[in-house]
Amino acid sequence: MSLNDLPGAEIILPGLNDLQSGESHTIGALLVAIAATRLTEAGLDIPRCHLALEPELTLYARLQNEREDAYQYYNALLNRLNSFCNALEINYKYQPSNN
């Protein structure tokens, strides 16, 4: 299974690219920072030197500045992140090399 096929990939994968480019405050990069431990444990290489220190607060503050529905959108983003992490963890767990 390709990472592009996982739910939430449209947000998370650009966030990984942002972090690799040194951008730590995009929505995707902040989501990756929130789940950096889970993503790393599931086999992704996360550039930790570019992670925001308080990604949850930073993301919410950014959304408050950009949207009237910040709370609902924040929760929707976290749900997408969780879906991506769950699918990645299942994929990683059942790879033949991990048995």
Rank of each mutant, 00 (worst) to 15 (best):
H25Q: 14
A76K: 08
E10G: 03
E89F: 03
D5C: 08
N98Q: 15
Y74H: 09
L6N: 10
D5F: 12
I12H: 05
I12F: 07
F84S: 00
L39H: 04
N82K: 13
N98G: 03
Q64T: 15
Y94G: 00
E10K: 04
H25T: 15
S2Q: 15
D5H: 14
G15S: 03
S97F: 13
A42N: 09
P55S: 08
R67I: 02
L78S: 07
A70K: 04
I11R: 12
C49R: 15
R48S: 13
I34L: 13
A35R: 11
N82C: 07
V32Y: 00
Q95F: 10
D69M: 06
A33E: 00
P14V: 06
I34R: 08
G43S: 07
E41F: 10
I11Q: 11
D18P: 07
D69P: 02
N98V: 05
A42F: 09
I46K: 01
A9G: 12
L51V: 07
L30R: 01
D5R: 14
S2F: 12
E54K: 08
Y60N: 13
D5P: 01
L3Q: 07
Q20N: 15
P7H: 06
T58C: 09
L16Y: 03
T37M: 10
C49E: 15
A29W: 00
A87V: 03
L63P: 06
R67V: 02
G8V: 07
T37C: 09
A33Q: 01
S24C: 05
L81Y: 02
D45M: 13
L63G: 05
N4H: 13
E54L: 08
R80Q: 15
S83L: 09
A52K: 04
S24H: 03
L6W: 12
P7I: 05
L78F: 09
S2K: 15
E23D: 03
R80G: 04
L16G: 00
I12P: 04
E41I: 10
A36E: 13
E23K: 00
D69K: 06
E54V: 04
H50W: 13
Y94L: 04
A9D: 08
A9K: 11
G8F: 02
N65M: 14
L19A: 04
L53F: 12
G8A: 09
P47I: 14
E68C: 07
L3F: 07
P96M: 08
L88D: 00
A52M: 05
M1E: 11
R48T: 14
I34G: 08
L78Q: 12
N82D: 14
N75G: 02
N75K: 10
E68P: 01
I12C: 05
L39N: 03
E23S: 00
Y73G: 01
C49Y: 12
E68T: 12
L30C: 04
G8M: 06
S24M: 01
C85D: 09
P55D: 06
P7T: 05
N79W: 08
L3P: 03
I12M: 12
T40G: 02
L39D: 02
H50I: 01
L30D: 01
S24W: 00
E89I: 04
M1T: 14
N75F: 07
Y71T: 13
R62A: 03
S97Q: 13
